[in-house]
C-alpha cells in the first residue's frame, strides 16, 4: 500500500488557521499570508521544538510547588488546616468516595505527569529524527491534546468551594498559592502541546 504524498512533495502548504491548500511560494515571497483568511503562512510551526521544550520545562518546575504548597485552607469551628492536592485525594479516599478520589487523582496527578513524559518523549524522538512507532507517537500526541485541559478540574473545584463556604468563624475555605502554581502547570503544558508540531514526527520519512 502506498501512502499519499505529503504537502512539500507537491509544493503546496496548508494554511494552519483555515486549512486552505495553497501553492508553496514561501521561498520567493518570504512571509506569505493566506489569501482566504489572512493568517500568516508557514510550513511548520515556527521554533516549534525550542518553544515546546521551554514551556514544558517551565511547567515541570511549577509542578513542584503545585504539589508541595497547600492549594486550599479549610477552617471548621476555629480549627483550620492547609491542604495540598494529594491530601485532598487521600481525604476523599478515607471518606469512602473512591470514585471521586480516583477522578481527582487522574486529573491532577496522572494527566499532568503523563503529559510531561509523553511530550518529552515526542520532543526527544523528533530531535533524533527517529522512525520508531510513528503512528503510535502521533496517536499519543492526539491523546495529550484531548485530555490535557481536564487538569483544570482542581482549580475549578477550589474556586467553587471557596466561593460557597464563607461562614466566618463557623467554617471558611480560602484558596492558597499552590493552586496558582497548579493552574500554571496546566496552562504551560497546554501551550507546550500546542507549540509542538506533530508533522515533525513524519519529517524523517524521506531521509
Amino acid at each position: 500500500m502506498s501512502l499519499p504524498p505529503r504537502a512539500h512533495q507537491l509544493h503546496v502548504l496548508a494554511c494552519h488557521a483555515c486549512g486552505m491548500v495553497l501553492e508553496d511560494a514561501l521561498d520567493s515571497t518570504g512571509h506569505g499570508r493566506c489569501p482566504r483568511c489572512t493568517a500568516v503562512l508557514h510550513r511548520r510551526r515556527p521554533n516549534s521544538i525550542a518553544r515546546a521544550w521551554a514551556l514544558l520545562i517551565a511547567g515541570l518546575l511549577f509542578y513542584i510547588p503545585a504539589n508541595v504548597l497547600p492549594v486550599m485552607f479549610t477552617s471548621r469551628l476555629g480549627s483550620g488546616s492547609d491542604n495540598t492536592i494529594l491530601q485532598g485525594v487521600i481525604e476523599f479516599w478515607h471518606g469512602g468516595s473512591y470514585g471521586v478520589a480516583l477522578v481527582i487523582f487522574i486529573a491532577s496527578v496522572v494527566v499532568p505527569c503523563s503529559k510531561f513524559v509523553i511530550l518529552g518523549l515526542l520532543l526527544i524522538t523528533v530531535q533524533r529524527r527517529s522512525a520508531w512507532a510513528r503512528r503510535e507517537r502521533a496517536r499519543l500526541y492526539r491523546l495529550v491534546e484531548l485530555v490535557g485541559y481536564w487538569s483544570m478540574l482542581d482549580v475549578l473545584v477550589v474556586a467553587i468551594v471557596a466561593a460557597l463556604v464563607k461562614f466566618q468563624s463557623l467554617s471558611d475555605i480560602e484558596p492558597r498559592s499552590g493552586i496558582l502554581f497548579f493552574g500554571m502547570v496546566v496552562i504551560l503544558t497546554m501551550l507546550s502541546a500546542m507549540q509542538f508540531d506533530p508533522r515533525l514526527i513524519w519529517d524523517s520519512e524521506d531521509t
Binding site: R6, A7, E23, P198
Partner: peptide, 23 residues
C-alpha cells in the same frame, strides 16, 4: 497583499497532523 496570486487547491485537503495530501 503578498498572498494574492497564489494558486489555490480548494478540492484538496491536507492532514493537520502529518501533512498528507488528499482529494
Amino acid at each position: 497583499m503578498s498572498g494574492d496570486g497564489l494558486k489555490t487547491f480548494p478540492e484538496w485537503v491536507v492532514c493537520e497532523h502529518c501533512d498528507s495530501v488528499y482529494q
